[in-house]
Design a protein around this nucleic acid. Sequence first.
DNA 1: CTGAAAGCGCTTACAG
DNA 2: CTGAAAGCGCTTACAG
Lengths: 339, 339
Amino acid sequence: MATIKELAAYTGLSPSTVSIVLGGKAEERGIPQATCQRVLEAARVLGYRPNLSARRLRDPQASGGLVIAVFWAQDFRAPMMVRFLRGLRRAVAEQGEGYELLIHPYTCGRLREERSLVSLSAFNAAIICNASAEDLEWLEQARLMMPVVLYNRESPSYCGVTVDDEEIGALAAQQFAAHRCRRAAVLSADSVFYGMQLRNDSFVKTCRQLGIAVGPVIQRENSMAGGCGAVSALLENSQARPDCVFCASDALALGALRGLHQQGISLPEALKIISVGNGDREAQQYAWPSLSVVSVPMEEMAQECFRLLLRLIAGEIRPPFGRRMEVRYLPGESCPPVE
Amino acid sequence: MATIKELAAYTGLSPSTVSIVLGGKAEERGIPQATCQRVLEAARVLGYRPNLSARRLRDPQASGGLVIAVFWAQDFRAPMMVRFLRGLRRAVAEQGEGYELLIHPYTCGRLREERSLVSLSAFNAAIICNASAEDLEWLEQARLMMPVVLYNRESPSYCGVTVDDEEIGALAAQQFAAHRCRRAAVLSADSVFYGMQLRNDSFVKTCRQLGIAVGPVIQRENSMAGGCGAVSALLENSQARPDCVFCASDALALGALRGLHQQGISLPEALKIISVGNGDREAQQYAWPSLSVVSVPMEEMAQECFRLLLRLIAGEIRPPFGRRMEVRYLPGESCPPVE
DNA sequence: CTGAAAGCGCTTACAG
DNA sequence: CTGAAAGCGCTTACAG
């Protein structure tokens, strides 16, 4: 990478002059066109690219801000990222700017390969989302110097923001019980995330406590395709068809909705659905029928991640320090309110 | 903001020692616990935050990379951002990393307030998305030094990646004509974007050419709520009900789908729908009925933005230099293929 | 119109 | 175990 010094040597000018031209201040400094041409030409030929760190170091305005990296696992569903970023933006706005958000995609299970988490010179702090069990394991032993907050994960040595996973499953089961459902099914996702297991287990356990039998527990790819394809498996056993289904994600539930339409099953009469609400709220509400969900407050969780990170940086808290957010049941037509 | 020098003064140690402790290298350098405590305590008390630019400047690894800001207007629909980022990530991966993506939200019409576009020290280059007419106007006269590519906008002085907006409207009209539709409606959005107008105008014009009457042209908020609420207005005139509708966005179309279900209108028999496909592909496919769309290739457009930006930086191209991407009709159940 | 010098905040050989 | 010095690449007074 060419530097200004090299451009100066190449053109026979001084670094000052080169810098002035490159900064677009040639005119106000009365530097003739010809000199500009020489500099610009040299920049092109030598492939000059300004070093941003050096520029920023000189500029108190640009130098001060906190750079916060958001590690987002690539394979996670897109609407979740949207909601997360929305919450983060709110949190940033609340603090009055001066923060830079760096989106850093990574691959689940390969967080250890992200050297930037160790280097200390890539960003000031990080929010790590969707870490897998392996990733968490690495984090434990790595003991990063960098301030880190985990989104939706718990750890003995880091700060984290979580939800009550067991409550999610329990709330759904309670709703079904209120409707006097008799037989429940679970539509879950292939997952690297232990929280999902907790939700399912809690749903099943609560069903049993409330006298609801639990029929098939099905695992599919976490997508609408997965949810749609699962419908036949769900209804396979015609003796013991479920009258209610707990879905691990919006995507699965929306896919299932389509599958059920195709089969001519009418909701909520023949079957009730409650999903974990981790997708776009509007898509839940304008589905046909609209989805009943136990909503994961992702925006608030993101906001809280940011707040925790700031307090961590300020030394006001020390890891581990967790915050657990409330979940809420939002009824829709797929499991209407009981009057 | 405290610096290492100040910490040194405060603790009575040298900057070197402070730096070593703060860098987590106390142990390997044999610095005693007590000294570490002193430094860490001072950092907390004085509110020390490492200056990232300075750190990066020292670290050739961290210093070299290109920092690219993505200006995304806040009010634009979320799924669009997802698709855009997906394409961008692909483009980055294709180049083999070394690039930092900075997400920079802004408010439509207020791009001029973004000082970082002028400062030259905030990032190396920018992709500007969803600029309004006012924003474009400002860009024209600002003549930024920074390399910039516009997403889905044309400009006499900047590079841009666009689609053929007229083709979008025309393709939809042609499909309806193939189905022998007689009366078309348009469900459009309140918009700051002239391209949307081009699409609608072209749809209307092509309809007329093909002998399709054009009924109500309705404008609503660009959301599912808007689309759903528009249905009654769409069907208002029972003498001259449309038998096909062109929707300006996925969100509007999905909302309309729900509204039509509520009214008991059966698709595609009673009404056909084609939407501009600017949302999540899976949501289009798993809607009931699945949506026919003229797809805007947002991922490819994002990828092309990135490529153009790199070539711009390398001096291989000069603004204005535009790329226009192809649109494609993807049939779904809301307007099935004609056999 | 152009250049020599200082300095942004940090880290890392190197010396003691 | 700790410190003095150099230098990363850049820009900006200042001097000529």
